[in-house]
Amino acid sequence: MSPKVRDYGLVLMLIVAGLVPLIVGLNPYLLTVLILMLIFIIYSSAWNFLTYTGQGSLGHAAFFGLGGYGSALIASWLSLPPFAAVFIGAGAAALAGLFIGAICVRLKEWFLAMVTFGFAIIIQTLVVSRQFSGITGGWDGIAAARLMPGGGGTNLLIEYYAILVIGVMVIVIFWLILRSKTGLAFAAIRENELEARAAGINPVKYRLFAFLVSAYFSGVAGALEVHHLGYITPEIFGVDISFWPIIYSISGGLMTLSGPVVGTIAITIVWDGLQTFGLTYGRFIIIGLLLILIIIFLPKGLISLPDRIREYRDKRKK
């Protein structure tokens, strides 16, 4: 699929996303599901941004959670409206991203995976530690101002559109970065680091930049979630929060803008749909199996499925 077609796809998806509330109406449950889905689309897209430089993280919950804590605290200290605090609070995640990125940029994939995984654990330990629990509320957590207090269909609809706008903004920013010289440098580093160096590209600089951007927008997603739920506890640094964006991005397709979007939507439908059949553990088994099958048979994710089907049909015709 050419990049151009993909871009059309995204525009189309945007139109659909804008129209979805017309179908679900003011149904608060479905709006809740959609809002959480949008937040995870932002989060998965931010996680996926890292893979453009050939890096991967198993501990993005650290950034998701730091963004949440940063924003919840700033909103309460400065009495800022949550929609503003989100962008400032995510700075905490960006700082952490810069720090961990500085350690990670020279490391090989396995080491990177371990360091990021461990970093989420270290951050959680710090947040609940005696030294910081005065600020973070320790295990009790802290309240976060809600995006749209009062709830109900109309408020959730406003929230949905606001988060949709933020989501579109984030993806447009990623798109702008990737089509610029920086994006070319990313690709060069990913394909062959030595050649990239020879061409005068400093991989460390670009990888660090990717880390910073990825961490910042993961923080934005985390902050949005926390303000949506109205409360934050250290459980936000859990392993599941680190693993979901990986599952979403791989399912949809790594190193594409539409991959995480498609993946998040598809997996959310599968996950919540299976629940109506009364499956509990079975759901995790199915997700695990799906992930393995996709990695082996559909390495470019669900968005490459139509291509693969066409290839298969062409082959059969011959």
Binding site: T51, K108, F284, I287, G288, I292
Partner: peptide, 21 residues
């Protein structure tokens, strides 16, 4: 290398929850 790491994640979910069942 990333694929190997990600496939392990799939295996973790699969094996843990199969054991729980």
């Amino acid at each position: 290398k990333l694929n190997e790491i990600f496939i392990s994640i799939g295996l973790i979910y699969l094996i843990q929850n199969a054991a729980a069942v």
